[in-house]
Amino acid sequence: MDKSDIRASLRALRKDMIRPDTVAALCAHAAALPEGQVVALYHAIGAEMPTQALAQTLLDQGRTLCLPVVMARDQPMVFRLWTPGDPLEDDMAGCPAPLDLNSEVVPDLVIAPLVAFDPRGYRLGQGGGHYDRTLAVLPQAIRVGLAFAAQEVELLPREPHDIRLHGVLTENGYRAFI
């Protein structure tokens, strides 16, 4: 299967997976996440793994949160400080993002959404390339995918620009790849 086929099948599958028990299980495993004081989350859209409860769990751990902002479609994203309840506005990609009044930061840990991942640590995103472009300019950041365990596939098609994850957090726990 090519990337578009994988996206189509797994997008449909993950809609049925968003349940309170799944999200609670994921948060219970958040203590196993790698260290990182400034953590980049994302504001879930559609059937992406919800992040509201995880955000509170990370704050309770004493971490600082930020969200990505797409400033231009073909450029790396920037990250702005964020706390749940802060006002958001749509960025250039139409995703909710902190206002430009919020300070820009460089995250130590990037928690990225995904459509699929494989056992080698490669992720398949929505197809815009925003995370691959951004992770390429943040080599020091620890890269973790946030997913349902059922989003794992045997092998993803890979391109030279694809950036591997250090690990993935699912409702079954944290799994390191690198």
Rank of each mutant, 00 (worst) to 15 (best):
D74G: 00
K3Y: 08
G121P: 01
R11M: 14
P96C: 09
R73D: 12
T22N: 15
L88N: 03
A40G: 06
T83M: 06
Q126H: 14
E152A: 13
G145E: 01
H43V: 01
L65D: 00
P20Y: 04
I111N: 00
R164L: 13
C27I: 07
M77D: 00
C66S: 10
G173Q: 01
V39P: 05
Q75R: 13
L109V: 02
T83W: 05
R14C: 05
A31H: 13
G167R: 08
E171V: 06
G173I: 00
R133K: 11
H43L: 10
Q37E: 15
P119A: 09
E48Y: 00
A116N: 08
V168E: 03
D86I: 02
C66A: 12
V153W: 07
G125C: 02
K15L: 15
R19P: 01
T64A: 11
A53T: 12
T22E: 14
D5A: 15
L33G: 02
G128V: 07
F79P: 02
L165M: 13
A116Y: 09
R11P: 04
L99N: 08
C27Q: 02
L33M: 04
G125N: 06
A40P: 04
A32H: 12
R133H: 06
R80D: 02
P20G: 10
R19I: 02
I111D: 05
S4L: 15
G62R: 05
W82E: 05
R175D: 06
L165H: 05
P20M: 11
D132P: 08
R7W: 08
M1E: 12
F79I: 04
